[in-house]
Design a binder for these strands. Structure first.
Lengths: 99, 99
DNA sequence: TTTATTTATCGTTAATCACCGATAAACGAT
DNA sequence: ATCGTTTATCGGTGATTAACGATAAATAAA
C-alpha cells in the first residue's frame, strides 16, 4: 500500500477502518463477531444468552458493530437476525494483509 | 479457530486483541502505524510533523499504541525511536486470517 | 383485542478518551 | 554548569463510552 499518499479517499478509508477497529475494540464485541461467524447468523436473544450482561447492553454492542459496518441485521418479525458482513470483513483482512 | 471454547486463555487473548483493535480505532493512530511501517522506524518528532496536533497529543497516541503492544519504542539519547512490533502485528494478521 | 415475546431506545451514572498548554525529565553540546 | 532539544507527564475540559433499568414499539399468538 502506498501510505505516503494522503488523499481525501485514503483519509475517508482510514476513518472507516478506524470505526471498524474501534467497534472490535471490546472483548464482548469480539466474542459476538466470533459467535456470529461460528453460527452464521444469530438473533439478538441468542447472543444475550451467552453473556452476563443485560439485553440493553448487548443491543448497544450490536448497534455499535452495525454502525461500523462489520455486522448487519435484518428485522424478522419481532426478532432481528444479525450476521457478519463478509465483504467488509474481507476488506479489513485485505488491509491487514497489505500492512 | 474454535471460538466455541471460552477458556481463561481465550478470554485473555480476546482482551489483548481488543486492546490492540482499540488502539487502532483512531484515524491518527492508524496513520501513525502506516507511517512507522513505511519508514521502518521513526522518532516522535518526525511523527508530530505529519499531523496538525500538538506534541503532547501525539505522544499520548504513541503511548496508547505502545500499551497495546502493537508499537514499541526505545530511548535513544534524548529521543525515542518507535517501530511496529512485527510479531504482534503478525499475530493480529493470523487472527484475522482465521476469522 | 389482549397478552407475551423480542428488540430498540431513553435517561442516568461512572469511567475513559481526545485534545490542549504547561512543565518536568533526560540528554547532548557549548 | 548552562542551554537547547526532545519526549513524557500533569492537570484540565468537553465529548464519548459502557453499563444498567425502565419503557416503547413491533409482531405473533391466544
Amino acid at each position: 500500500m502506498d501510505t505516503k499518499l494522503d488523499t481525501k479517499d485514503t483519509k475517508t478509508d482510514r476513518k472507516k477502518l478506524a470505526e471498524i477497529f474501534k467497534s472490535l475494540g471490546h472483548p464482548t464485541r469480539i466474542k459476538i463477531v466470533e459467535h456470529l461467524i461460528d453460527m452464521d447468523t444469530c438473533v439478538c436473544g441468542e447472543i444475550v444468552d451467552i453473556f452476563p450482561f443485560s439485553q440493553s447492553t448487548i443491543s448497544q454492542h450490536l448497534k455499535h458493530l452495525k454502525a461500523s459496518g462489520i455486522v448487519c441485521g435484518e428485522v424478522e418479525g419481532p426478532k432481528t437476525r444479525f450476521c457478519v458482513d463478509k465483504q467488509i470483513l474481507n476488506q479489513v483482512k485485505a488491509y491487514m494483509g497489505k500492512l
